[in-house]
C-alpha cells in the first residue's frame, strides 16, 4: 500500500513537471500575464491616478479595496473563531493536564528583548507608513508589531504581555481596524462617490483627488495594521494556553 502510494505520488509529480514545460519562460515579456490588457492598464495608469509608486499597494488598497477589506474581516473572524473554539464549553473535554510554570525569566534574554522590542515596533510603523513607496504595508507591519508582543510573552511570561495588551482590548482594537477601513469607504460614499472610491474625499480635505487616494490608502493600511496586530497576538495567547489565558508556553 505504501509503495503504491509512493509510485502514485511520483507519477503525479512527473506529470506536473512535464506540464511545467508549457509555462512561459522566466521573465518572458510576451507571456499572457505580462501582455494582458489589465496589467498594462495598471502599469500605465497607477502613477497618474493615485501618485503611488508601489503598484502592488495601489492595486490592493485602491483598485481592489473591496477584496482587501473582506480579507481583513476574514482575519478578524479567524481570530474570533480560534478564540471561541479554544474557550469551548465546559463539557467539551476534560482538562486533565494542568501546567505549572517553573521559571525565572532569563536575564540575558529579557535584557535583549528590552533592547530589541522598541526597534521592532518602530520598524513595524516604518513598514506600515512606507507601504506606498517600498514593499510593505498594513499586513506586514501588523505582523511585525504582533511579533513584538509575542516576544514579550515569550521572554517574561504571558501575564506580563497580557498586562500590556489585554485580550479584551485585542478584539476591540481588531474591530476598530475594520471600522477605520469601512469608515473611510462609507465617508467616500456619503460624499457622493461609490463605496471605497477615495477620490471623493478631496471634497472635504484640501488636496487634489489623486493625493486624496494616496492618503486614504495610508488610512486603510493603518486599519489593516490594527486588525492584524491584535489578531496575531490573540492567536498566540489562545493557542499557547489552550484557551485558559494563563500558565501558557
Amino acid at each position: 500500500m505504501k509503495r503504491t502510494a509512493f509510485i502514485l505520488v511520483l507519477l503525479i509529480g512527473l506529470l506536473l513537471a512535464w506540464a511545467a514545460r508549457d509555462f512561459p519562460a522566466w521573465g518572458d515579456p510576451h507571456s499572457p500575464a505580462s501582455s494582458s490588457a489589465v496589467s498594462s492598464h495598471f502599469i500605465a495608469n497607477t502613477g497618474v491616478d493615485t501618485e503611488v509608486p508601489n503598484m502592488v499597494t495601489a492595486v490592493l488598497a485602491d483598485y481592489r479595496g473591496f477584496d482587501t477589506m473582506f480579507e481583513t474581516v476574514v482575519v478578524f473572524i479567524a481570530g474570533l473563531a480560534v478564540f471561541s473554539i479554544l474557550r469551548g464549553g465546559p463539557n467539551r473535554r476534560t482538562r486533565d493536564r494542568e501546567f505549572v510554570v517553573d521559571f525565572e525569566p532569563d536575564l540575558i534574554v529579557t535584557n535583549t528583548v528590552r533592547l530589541i522590542v522598541p526597534v521592532i515596533q518602530i520598524f513595524a510603523l516604518y513598514v506600515l507608513a512606507h507601504g506606498h513607496v517600498s514593499p510593505g504595508g498594513g499586513f506586514q507591519g501588523g505582523v511585525a508589531m504582533g511579533a513584538s508582543f509575542i516576544l514579550i510573552a515569550l521572554s517574561w511570561d504571558l501575564k506580563t504581555a497580557l498586562a500590556r495588551f489585554p485580550i479584551e482590548r485585542c478584539f476591540t482594537v481588531a474591530a476598530l481596524g475594520i471600522v477605520i477601513y469601512a469608515g473611510i469607504g462609507l465617508l467616500s460614499m456619503f460624499l457622493g462617490g461609490e463605496f471605497l472610491d477615495y477620490a471623493h474625499l478631496a471634497k472635504v480635505f484640501p488636496v487634489s483627488p489623486e493625493m486624496a487616494r494616496y492618503h486614504a490608502m495610508l488610512g486603510v493600511e493603518i486599519g489593516v495594521g490594527f486588525t492584524v496586530t491584535a489578531i496575531m497576538f490573540a492567536l498566540y495567547a489562545g493557542l499557547s494556553t489552550d484557551g485558559r489565558m494563563r500558565d501558557g508556553l
Partner: peptide, 8 residues
C-alpha cells in the same frame, strides 16, 4: 515572526 511560534 509568527508561523513558527504558532506551530510550536
Amino acid at each position: 515572526g509568527v508561523s513558527t511560534v504558532v506551530l510550536i
